Computed example of a mutant assay.
Amino acid sequence: MKPPIPARDISPERQAMYYAGMAAGVVGALLFVSTFFSFAMNFGNFDDFEGRARSIFLRAVGGMCLMVVGPAVMGVAARGLAGSGVKLDPEQARRDLEPWSRMRGGVIGDVLDEIPAVQQVIDRLGSADQTVEVVRVRCNACRALNDEHDKFCGQCGERL
């Protein structure tokens, strides 16, 4: 049986920061895409061209900035300040990244649980308190230890 997983969740502040970054990225994408619609809707219309061009330019640049800043904020929120490299503190980074490390190990454990061959090996090995006897053979020439099935010494090459 697997040991129970301790409850270590991501803080509400980091969750809020993550979703704020996501919202900023979406707003940035909408702003950027809206410039193409504005351009297409006013194609050939040169009334107040300078004002519209300034508006389109500002929306495009602002949208691109938000599309860069949003995912960056999401990354920092997901991994924490130290886990994302903003703050250089290895111990804090380990704590910040712990939920993701635990999740990765849990996913791998779930995959291994579904493979019948792995389950058969685990069943054959049984519990951890069983000991396995290993037989070694000492070489007569150099006195090195070798596996019992070896025909030649692994150190000097003499026949066992």
Rank of each mutant, 00 (worst) to 15 (best):
I115S: 08
A77S: 07
K87R: 14
W100H: 14
G70T: 03
M67T: 05
L66T: 00
V73F: 02
I56H: 12
I56N: 15
G63D: 07
A82M: 10
V107E: 07
D113Y: 02
A72W: 13
L66K: 00
R104T: 13
V73C: 09
I56A: 15
A77Q: 02
A77D: 01
L112W: 00
A60E: 11
A93P: 06
A82Y: 06
G83V: 05
I115R: 03
R102A: 14
K87C: 03
L112G: 00
M74R: 06
P116N: 04
C65K: 10
V68Y: 05
G75S: 09
E91F: 06
F57A: 15
G70W: 00
L66V: 04
A60V: 07
A72L: 15
F57T: 15
A93H: 04
E98H: 09
P71G: 04
G63R: 01
G106S: 05
A72P: 00
P90Q: 12
G85K: 06
G75R: 09
R94I: 05
R102Y: 01
A78L: 04
A93Y: 08
A93V: 09
W100T: 03
R94W: 03
R102C: 03
G106Q: 02
P116V: 03
P90W: 08
R79T: 00
L112K: 10
G70C: 02
M74S: 10
E114M: 14
G70S: 05
L97H: 09
G105S: 07
V107D: 08
G109N: 01
G106P: 06
P99G: 06
G85S: 10
M67R: 04
I56S: 15
A60S: 14
V73M: 13
M67Y: 04
I56D: 15
V68N: 06
V69Q: 01
G106D: 09
R94D: 13
I115D: 01
L88M: 13
V107L: 15
G62K: 04
G106E: 08
G75H: 09
V86R: 10
M103W: 15
M103Q: 14
R102N: 07
A77P: 02
R95F: 09
E114K: 14
V69M: 11
C65T: 14
A72N: 03
A60M: 15
L97T: 09
D96F: 10
A82K: 11
I56R: 14
V86F: 13
R59H: 14
P71A: 08
G63A: 11
V61S: 02
V76Y: 01
G80D: 07
V111T: 12
R79P: 02
